[in-house]
Deep mutational scan, measured.
Amino acid sequence: EPREEEAEKYIKRANGDYDKAQELAKKDGNEEIAEAIKEYKKR
């Protein structure tokens, strides 16, 4: 799923820090991806 791939990219950029990844996504205006990262975190 493209959303998950995007989320993974942010998580990698944030060195595995989900909260930081979420912030990066929000900064880029990717609210949807920020949500996907939140879902990811719950797994």
Rank of each mutant, 00 (worst) to 15 (best):
R13Q: 14
E39Q: 10
Y18M: 07
E6N: 07
L24F: 06
A7S: 05
D19G: 06
G16Y: 10
E35K: 11
Y10R: 03
K20R: 11
A36L: 15
E1Y: 14
A14G: 03
E23R: 07
A36T: 09
K9I: 11
K9F: 08
N30Q: 11
E39P: 00
E23A: 10
E39R: 10
I37M: 02
Y40E: 07
D19P: 02
E31M: 14
E23H: 06
K41M: 10
I37R: 01
K20H: 08
E31I: 13
P2Q: 13
A34Y: 07
K20I: 12
K20F: 12
E1K: 13
K12Y: 06
A34H: 04
K41C: 10
R13N: 09
A25F: 00
G16N: 05
A25C: 04
E8D: 08
A7Y: 08
E35L: 11
K9Y: 12
E31W: 15
E32T: 10
G16K: 02
A21L: 00
N30C: 07
K9A: 13
D28P: 00
D17F: 02
Y18C: 12
Y10E: 03
K20A: 10
Y40T: 06
E6V: 08
E1D: 15
D28V: 02
A7L: 13
K42N: 09
Y10V: 04
E4K: 11
G29S: 04
K12R: 11
A36D: 05
I37K: 01
E39W: 06
E8R: 12
Q22D: 03
I11M: 05
A36Q: 11
A14W: 00
A21K: 00
R13V: 08
I37W: 00
K41W: 08
K38H: 07
A7G: 03
A14Y: 02
A14H: 00
R43C: 09
Y18L: 11
I33V: 13
Y10T: 03
A14M: 03
D28H: 04
D17E: 03
K27Y: 09
K38R: 12
K41Q: 14
E32V: 08
P2Y: 14
R43F: 08
I11L: 11
G16M: 05
E39K: 07
Y10K: 03
D17C: 04
Q22T: 09
L24C: 03
N30L: 13
N30K: 15
I11Y: 02
G16I: 01
N15I: 04
E23F: 06
E23T: 06
K42A: 10
E6H: 06
E8A: 08
E39G: 05
L24K: 03
Q22M: 15
Y40K: 12
G16E: 03
D19Y: 06
R3A: 13
K9V: 08
E6G: 07
K27Q: 13
K9R: 11
E35Y: 06
E35S: 07
K12L: 07
E1M: 13
Y10D: 03
R13W: 14
E35A: 12
A21W: 00
D17T: 01
L24P: 00
